[in-house]
Design a protein around this nucleic acid. Structure first.
Length: 484
RNA sequence: GGGGUUGUAGGGUAGCCUGGUCCAUCCUACAGCGUUCGGGACGCUGUGACCUGAGUUCGAAUCUCAGCAACCCCA
């Protein structure tokens, strides 16, 4: 055996690489830790700690949500605790959540006369207040949202960012309208906003109308957004519910119409949680770590100085560049840590930094920097006009990120016509199955395929086909997948 | 809802079957010093762990039970 061979073997073993992405679960858990997004060592089941870096991603991701909602929604905040009597008013709603509620039963050592629920979602906290706030048609439409934590006593296995007992970042919007039709329109608007949101994260998604047995407890219907994860399972990353007047009746939310009658309002609610970040990192990430879209990267540009020769000169050029880019509102970090350049390259790749600049004596001599994109493309760029060049690269990078995600997404959705095909397809992807729309056929589909029904695709139409269960011809389809 | 596996330094692991050899292995991390630095540097010197509780035993990381926590599979 030669020396070089021994050397290369030992070198390999020292590279702390992530597991292959095909081993998705393992890859996901290690990435969360190594890229410093979530620390799941907190000793309570289903409750995790955001690392500051992960929280910085959360901040910029939620900034997009706020930007999209703020034009016609008002941000607000309701209490975490809901009195039992309010919580228990809406029967369908209780049925959906009662097994998952945490109860506060004592204040200090004194038992409480009225138990307090930790919100699993906030309808029953918000709607009694809506009753007080809404008097007339002039108060409508009312649109509010809050970004809060919610608690659900999950009995299934919890997963960081995906299935939690404390959801830390639940954005829930609640709207109130004069008519059912206006509320229906609001559901469409909500889905449109969410679509923009996921597009900005460069994430492809599916939109479907959930089957009646899987809608939000108390809703007339639920439209949902799902992202296909690398293992082919789908992750529900957004829902919009038409609540009709179910809660309006229960909480007596009425308004005086122009003609002077008291009328029940129609309502919607729609939510997004930190699952959007699970999707973001899972879809774009690779064996080198995160790959973040420009807009949400806590560090957009990392400058790695190559400290050879006149080190002071190199550093001062780097600082100058850093200052210039910062002036252009680019989140830039100069890495002056005491590591070798190669180690820094790997570190920033792990953190998903879109663009890295290498600046060494050779570059300075020529008045250029070496620009390396997270997708591996390497260029030499003049220092003059660097900010503009970076902006152009960022845009291309965003397009490339989406293209790549899109190609994978499309390869994971297939039309099938039989139960057998659906079963095979849902092993590692999403099946589009002909379905007549009958509830019976739906349940049989789920049972026989061994996967869940996401529901009817929205904004698409299909030719007639035979229902995979009963054979009846219709233009109906449903997505089916194994779900997180 | 059902089943399975696991818990050893900050992270990843060896040891467990067959109790004593272990003041616990290796990689990484961390601290100090020096040499280095265009894709994961090297040397030297240090730091740091048997999930919690109960039990069995002369003796438990190792066996038993319970709790807590984590992961995987199936409905």
């Amino acid at each position: 055996m030669t020396d070089s061979k021994i050397k290369s073997i030992s070198k390999e073993s020292k590279q702390a690489k992530l597991p292959r992405k095909e081993d998705f679960s393992e890859w996901y858990h290690e990435l969360l830790m190594t890229a410093e997004i979530i620390d799941n060592r907190y000793p309570v089941k289903g409750m995790c700690v955001w690392f500051p870096f992960g929280f910085a991603i959360r901040k910029s991701v939620y900034a997009i949500i706020r930007e999209l909602l703020d034009p016609d929604h008002q941000e607000t905040q309701f209490p975490l605790m809901i009195p039992e009597n309010e919580f228990m008013k809406e029967a369908q709603h209780i049925k959906g959540f009662e097994d998952e509620v945490y109860w506060v039963t004592c204040g200090g050592t004194t038992p409480l006369e009225v138990k307090l629920a930790l919100r699993p979602t906030s309808e029953t906290a918000i709607y009694p207040m809506f009753k007080l706030w809404i008097r007339s048609h002039a108060d409508l439409p009312l649109r509010i949202y809050q970004i809060v934590n919610t608690f659900r006593y999950e009995t299934k296995h919890t997963r960081p960012l995906i299935r939690l007992r404390e959801i830390t970042s639940f954005k829930e919007a609640h709207t109130v309208h004069a008519t059912w039709e206006e509320a229906a329109e609001q559901v469409e608007t909500a889905i449109a906003r969410y679509s923009q949101f996921y597009r900005r994260l460069a994430l492809p998604f599916l939109v479907s109308r959930r089957p009646s047995w899987d809608k939000f407890p108390g809703a007339d219907y639920t439209t949902a957004i799902d992202v296909i994860m690398p293992d082919g399972k789908t992750l529900q990353v957004g829902t919009a519910h038409h609540l009709g007047s179910t809660f309006a009746r229960t909480y007596e939310i009425t308004y005086e119409s122009e003609s002077g009658e008291q009328k029940l309002v129609s309502q919607t609610c729609y939510g997004i949680s930190e699952r959007c970040i699970a999707a973001l990192i899972s879809v774009h990430g690779d064996e080198k770590g995160l790959a973040l879209p420009w807009e949400v990267a806590p560090v957009q540009v990392a400058i790695v100085p190559i400290l050879l020769g006149d080190k002071e000169k190199v550093l001062s050029v780097c600082r100058e560049l850093q200052g210039k880019l910062a002036t252009e509102k680019i989140r830039v970090q100069l890495d002056t840590s005491d590591e070798r350049p190669g180690a820094k390259f790997y570190k920033w790749e792990m953190k998903g930094v879109p663009i890295r600049l290498e600046v060494g004596p050779r570059d300075i001599e020529k008045g250029v920097v070496t620009l390396v994109r997270r997708d591996g493309i390497k260029k030499t760029v003049p220092m003059d006009g660097l900010a503009l060049a970076i902006a152009a690269e960022a845009e291309e990078l965003q397009a490339a990120l989406y293209q790549k995600a899109r190609a994978i997404h499309e390869s994971k959705v297939k039309d099938v016509s039989t139960i057998e095909e659906a079963r095979a397809q849902t092993e590692g992807g999403v099946a589009l199955v002909p379905w007549c729309g009958e509830v019976d056929c739906g349940h049989q589909l789920e049972d026989q395929v061994g996967a869940n029904m996401l529901g009817e695709p929205q904004y698409q139409s299909f030719s007639e086909a035979a229902c995979a269960v009963c054979g009846k011809k219709s233009a109906g389809r449903t997505y089916m997948a194994r779900q997180y």
